[in-house]
Every structure is written in C-alpha cells, then in structure tokens.
Amino acid sequence: MPADQQTDAPAKARAVAALADVPREPGAKKPDPILVVDKVVRRFGGLTAVNVGHVEIQRGAITALIGPNGAGKTTFFNLLTGFDKPDEGNWAFNGQPLQGVAAHKVARRGMVRTFQLTKSLNRLSVIDNMRLGATGQRGENFWRALIPGLWKKQEQDVTERADELLARFKLDAKREDFAGSLSGGQRKLLEMARALMVNPEMVMLDEPMAGVNPALTQSLLGHVKGLRELGMTVLFVEHDMDMVRDISDWVIVMGQGEVIAEGTPDEVMADQRVIDAYLGAHHDGAADPDADPAADTAGPAAPAAPAAGEPAGPTAGATAPKPAKEDGQ
C-alpha cells in the first residue's frame, strides 16, 4: 500500500486542485469529466427511482456517491453500467455515448464495477477468479479453446499479472483456495483485484466497505487511494462517512432519485439539504449523517445470501438466513 504512506500523493493533489474552482451545486461542470450524465430517469411502476438531471465525474479523482437508503444510488450504478435500462436519458464515457450499450461492453470500454453484495465466484479458485478478469483472451473462444497451444502463452502472461495483483492485495497465500472459502473482507479485496484485471479507466465500487471488518478497512482504503495514483477514476457508493471524508475528493449526494448536492466532503456534510435528506423533516439539528449506518446494517446484512451472492430466489433469506460466516471458516 504505497499510497497509504504518501499523504501528499501527486494524484490526490492534482484532483483537489482541479476541483477547487468547481461550483458547489448539483450538476456542476467539471474541468475534465470522464463521465457525463444527462437526464437519466428510471421508473419502477409509479415510483421514480432515479431522476438525475446532469452529473459529471472528474477524471482521475475519487468521487463518492452518498445518500440515504432508497435514494437510488445502486439503481443509478446499474443504469450507468448497463445492468439496468433507463426509461430515458443519455450518458457518455470518454465522450462515447453509453446508453443502450450492454453491460459487458461497458466493462470492455474501461468502466468496471463491483457489487454491493460481493460476487465472488465461489467454486472457482482465487487465481481463476483473477484470470477471468483479463480481457481479450484467445482461449475464451470456443474453437481456439480446444487447442491449448493457441492460448498457453497468453495464459502465462495473464497468470503473471494476476499473481502480481494478488500479492499487492495480500491474497497470494490464498491463491489455490476456492473463493467461497474467503472471509467477507477478503472477498471484497478479491472482487476489487479482479476488476483491476480488466485494466479499467474507471472503477465503480458499490459499498466497498459493507461487511468488512475494521482491520481490513484501512487496507481497502489504501487500495482505493492507490487506484487514483495509478491514474484511474473511482466512483463509489458508501454509507461510512468517515471513509467518505477520508478518501474522496468530491461528493455527490442523492436523495429520492435526484442529485441534491455536490461539493467536497466537509462542505457537503455541513449542507442543510443533505442533513434534511438523511434525517427527514423533524430532526433536532444534529449534523450527524452517520446516523444512517444503523439503517445501513439492516440493509446489506440481511441479504448476505452466502453462496449465491445474488438475491436469487425470493427465499434466499429463508433457506439460508445465516450470513456468509460459515463459508468464511
């Protein structure tokens, strides 16, 4: 974690400087946006889950997306990455329009995401999880796969790169283990490392800290900062305000599907609109957005369906009410 020690990392300084003059208002123009979103709307029946007028994400910066539960953050993520389709709106990544582009093509263009409920591929080894991330593998073509000679060399290169990343994320000791045997925090690390195998320009992290034990939090934070030093852009959803304050250069606040505020972490957390959004109408004035994690733990903890990792059947909880612990042992 080299980024951890360098408190005055160059990339951070550059990001802070670039954002210094950006007006603190929803939809503010950024000097060098990598992602520009315009009028994206997603309705579920009568409910408008997402209604984002205009948002820009600064290249090379770490941007946090916060907001109370049900604000539409994950839905917004799904829309941007092609996992859900908006009812209207358009957005562009690196100047290329992304609306209507399938999820896997979004990833190939350099925008890779992780999931709130970690999606480790349980019955694949850790190293296979990593290898899977590499793009442009010749052996992933059906016919070429039948002739090992055609892909053996590339496989070695991919493995080499995967091993480097595993070492960086301190997962090299687990190389041959099934991903399902890792702890929750290790899975988060693995998912992030795997996303890096894609060589993304922009990484979208959906609640990277949810369910991670405090000992691992610092290491994860360090890795996220490290991404910025490597020239990547990071957009992440998070409820932990300490983390948001610690690592983000810019914060976008969503409430009821709309962007309600933008600014640096400290400014945003003092913003009355943000406090209102978090605490509802009748709060007693205490600026304590951290109150949310109470609701937050109820959210991600319940659906921690261990093996599936996705809210599969309606009874994921009923048949397997215990969280992922068992697989972690």
Binding site: A107, V112, K119, L121, L124, L132, E140, V198
Partner: peptide, 23 residues
Amino acid sequence: SPWGRVIKAIREDEDAVRSLGKN
C-alpha cells in the same frame, strides 16, 4: 481452457462475469 473458466464462472454468478466484460 479459459472458455471453460468463463462457463464455470457463469454458473457461479453471471452478473459478475458480465461486469468483467464477457458476453
């Protein structure tokens, strides 16, 4: 082969595989 790796990964979680750029 890498093809089989993708196939087995789809069995585990197809959204994860999609997020890694596989069709």
